[in-house]
Amino acid sequence: MTLRLRDVSKRFQTRAGEVKVLDGVSLEVPQGRMTVVVGPSGSGKTTLLRCVAGLEELDGGSVEVAGRDVTSLDPGERDVAMVFQDYALYPHLSVRANIAFGLRARKVARDQIDAKVEQAASMVGLDAQLDRSPDRLSGGERQRVALARALVRRPAAFLLDEPLSNLDAELRTQTRSQIRSLQRSLDTTTIYVTHDQVEAMTMGDSVAVLRAGRVEQVGPPMELYERPSTAFVAGFLGSPPMNLFPSRLLGRDGDQLCGVRPERVDLVATDDARLHGEIAAVEPIGGEVIVHVRVGDCTLLVRRDLRGVGHLDGTVGLGFGDDDLHRFSASSGQRLP
């Protein structure tokens, strides 16, 4: 039950004129896998999801769910389920009726509905809340109702639109792994949209980085981290993201952007250093520190274990290996070999 998008494009009319929100997006999510679509706000990721759900009509391209072209089908006929960012729970219905809504709409027999609803509720741990009204639930419980509503139908695909953005930090970490294990055990093809690159890195079988309506790069999380194919991807993923600076800082010719991850930079004696700079700020983040170093007119970040660094002040040297140095074209942003 693979989910396939081919050359999907979508335009919106605004007062300023026509805006291409999606510009030829192709994406394939193999059966049972989860692809996380990540990108800055306005990159078109939610629109992408809505196009798959059928809530937006495409201006070009096609969507295929489980080998079936669903491009011109109504949302209800596509066999997909969606979890909305604000959950979109029906406020006048109990949790049970919320979960049952889609089955009712599809005229499933009543006794089957009850069994399925209870099974779905127990999968997300909502057995005790079934007869409550959604407005009496906590944020985390509401989120699980939305999940149960999606999985009760056993659809061919899940579409999750920033499902964790309304939860607090602690609950978010917990729910992240819960969603992942539910998705794995149900073996359901899933697209997961988020703006949070940590979610992207930790959850997806693969990650698609979206930028201005185009897919910048798709691949397994570590591949995107290790070999970002563009400067944009390099600067988007990682926390903090990759340092990007012009190659002239290294004394090289050519119009290039160099990149090195903050965690791969060493603070070294100035003699062995590849770059020299002034320390501008030191930010402790728990067991680690992030050191801001001014090099010429750039600021580079260094992420180090707190214990390894002594007193930080004045001029420091920055060292890194050739393997850790990424190079991109300054004009196109493409990775250079």
């Binding site: 809505r50 759900a53 059928g54 809530l55 109504d74 949302p75 209800g76 006929e77 596509r78 997909v80 389920a81 969606m82 909305f84 604000d86 979109a88 029906y90 809504f101 889609g102 709409a105 599809r106 509503r149 139908r153």
Partner: peptide
């Protein structure tokens, strides 16, 4: 909220 109608549409409600 329009989201409710979208959720219903995805849920297969005519």
């Amino acid at each position: 909220p329009p989201h409710l109608y979208e959720a219903a549409a995805v849920d297969g409600a005519g």
